[in-house]
């Protein structure tokens, strides 16, 4: 699903956001070119630094990185809540930065949704009014938007709270209102900035599952920011790791873990439990001729975590099959042990 030949839904190229310089100033100072000396100037922060990425239709891209690495800023550029300093962004092939105010409003009303890191609920509106707000902006009739908003409220489990004000809710409840609000318009493109960070583990798991269920049905194009690697692994089609505004690496979870492109990514992923990342396909060996195989096979996209116990219990290799039930490789007990315990020591050991 991650490499369709279709045009990407979001495509951004050589994107910069430098706080402290406007793009006009940039034009004046250096004909629009980014001069490295800008970085040293006082009061100037390069929050997004030469980022290029594509997100294709129905894909879920997770953006990770330390605090202050520019994740929120990147997403804000992609939704054009802030003006990038330079670079280009295309949404479904249309130049986002060239859009007029009116087109932008249309786009946001019909295509985009966003969940904010700090919830950003309107303090003067009740839960119901907050969720209904984007619908009202679209000009929906009162009875309709009330009904739709109530559905969303039920979805995020806030029944009975519809007449409360945000200040009367807990952090987690507020976050759920934010999620419901962005879902209400059924956006095609969905930006989520740490949407589950304020939830307790139980509700978080519930919400993640609900999220996956929705995503498998609706197939939205999603950019999802999180600090939680487990969450990233659970949800991501691809992961992008940001560092100081750069995207250090972007790829499928197992690629990142197995082949870290830079020192930083390697350090970043060193603590990741491999069994949760690696699939049978990514660790299997080639099948030797006439080798005796275990009776039960595993699928190529099964996570190591889920098959480890079975493989370890077999004295002979376990076959790995693809979607057409063709055997494409085998897994040895020894290899399994190596993955689970040996390599845990870190990239230096491998």
């Amino acid at each position: 699903m991650n490499t369709t030949s279709l045009q990407p839904v979001i495509r951004c190229q050589t994107l910069y956001k430098i706080f402290g310089i406007t793009s006009d100033q940039l034009q004046k100072d250096s004909q629009g070119l980014i001069d490295p000396s800008y970085r040293d100037r006082q009061g100037v922060v390069t929050a997004v630094d030469n980022v290029s990425l594509d997100v294709s239709d129905g894909e879920l891209l997770v953006v990770m990185g330390l605090s202050g690495s520019g994740k929120s800023t990147l997403v804000r550029c992609l939704s054009r809540l802030i003006e990038p300093t330079s670079g280009s962004i295309e949404i479904e092939g249309n130049d986002l930065l060239a859009m007029s105010e009116k087109e932008l409003i249309e786009l946001r009303r019909n295509k985009m949704g966003m969940v904010f890191q700090n919830f950003a609920l309107l303090p003067h509106k009740t839960v119901l009014e907050n969720i209904a707000f984007p619908l009202q902006m679209r000009g929906m009739k009162r009875a309709e938007f009330v009904e739709r908003a109530m559905k969303m409220i039920a979805l995020v489990g806030l029944d009975e709270k519809e007449n409360s004000f945000p200040r009367e809710l807990s952090g987690g409840q507020q976050q759920r209102v934010g999620i419901a609000r962005s879902l209400a318009v059924e956006p095609d493109i969905w930006f989520l900035d740490e949407p589950f960070s304020a939830l307790d583990p139980l509700i978080r798991k519930e919400m993640q599952d609900e999220f996956l269920r929705l995503q498998s049905m609706l197939k939205k194009t999603i950019v999802f920011i999180t600090h939680d690697f487990d969450e990233a692994l659970k949800l991501a089609d691809r992961i992008a790791i940001m560092y100081h505004g750069n995207i250090e690496q972007i790829g499928r979870p197992e690629d990142i873990v197995l082949n870290p492109a830079t020192e930083y990514v390697a350090k970043f992923t060193s603590d990741v439990p491999r069994e949760k990342v690696l699939t049978a396909g990514s660790v299997m060996d080639e099948r030797k001729e006439q080798e005796a195989l275990a009776s039960k096979s595993v699928r190529i996209d099964d996570l190591v975590e889920t098959i480890a116990e079975y493989v370890l219990g077999q004295s002979i290799p376990v076959p790995v099959v693809d979607a057409q039930d063709q055997i494409v490789g085998v897994l040895h007990q020894a290899r399994m042990l190596e993955i689970l315990f040996h390599e845990r020591a870190g990239p230096s050991g491998s």
């Binding site: 985009m112 949704g113 902006m137």
Partner: peptide, 22 residues
């Protein structure tokens, strides 16, 4: 909070709606 303004923008407010309703 600037996020609130952004939330309004994401809801597709025109600048008038943004002013009067957010």
């Amino acid at each position: 909070s600037p996020e609130i303004v952004e939330a309004g923008k994401m809801a597709g407010c025109t600048s008038r709606q943004l002013l009067f309703r957010v």
